[in-house]
Amino acid sequence: MSTEEIVAMDHVSFKYGRQNVLDDISLHVKKGSFLGLVGPNGSGKSTLIKLLLGLHKQQDGTIQLFGEDHRRFRGWSRVGFVSQKAASFNSGFPATVKEVVSMGLYGKKGLFRFLTKKDRQRVEEALEKVGMREYKNKTIGQLSGGQQQRVFIARALVSDPELLILDEPTVGVDAESVQNFYTLLKELNEQQGMTLILVTHDIGAMSSYVTDVACLNKCLHYHGGIVDYEENREELMNRMYGHEVNVIEHNHDHHHHSHDHDHDDLHGGRPG
């Protein structure tokens, strides 16, 4: 693991209206690490990721990606993103697996450029990596949830990102696929040195794969190596989930409650 920082967030806070979702978060992710970002539902995990990706407008604090202020950052193809399953895509969409994976190259290509033969080769390779090559001509709606998710991973991998962010990628995916999926992520991290941020509320399943853990519930309760985390686990859980009870008690407004599932319009993030 090198000392180069891929993500550097300092004193980041975020509010939906008057509702405080993230409070003074400072989180640094080093190159080559595999960070598990855990926290209960509604703890602001997805909001944090959306801020990082520029999908929400930044309010307080600074965020740097690859050492650059993320508001001026243009290298989005260096960042791969896999959102929650069925988050925003329309499963009746008549697109083939190949077509879906190709989308992963669009940002990198830029306007007025078409896919080359080499690009199509890369699409096949990405599908091979996730074991979905034989399904390349099926439409996305014909696949199971786990298979769709693997296609979306291939889409994130096809542009060879240096940082891969996954937001609850295993929701609705069967247990066996989840294991395979984590193994794939570990390989990407160990063999290709890819930096990964995995958002999940299931701490147990990912603990044997990640190198670091960050526990979030509005504020950052812990961030460090997985070994330290395992040692202090019980105390941490009490602190985090104790906090959550308070959040729920003071929060009856449905809209503000469901931040982790907020797939409404992108709240004024990146302009066009």
Binding site: S77, F81, S88, F89, N90, G104, Y106, G107, L266, G272
Partner: peptide
């Protein structure tokens, strides 16, 4: 297909 992902990959929505 997926507006959020498209924006995240840098497409000027």
């Amino acid at each position: 297909f997926d507006e959020e992902q498209a924006v995240a990959s840098g497409i000027p929505r």
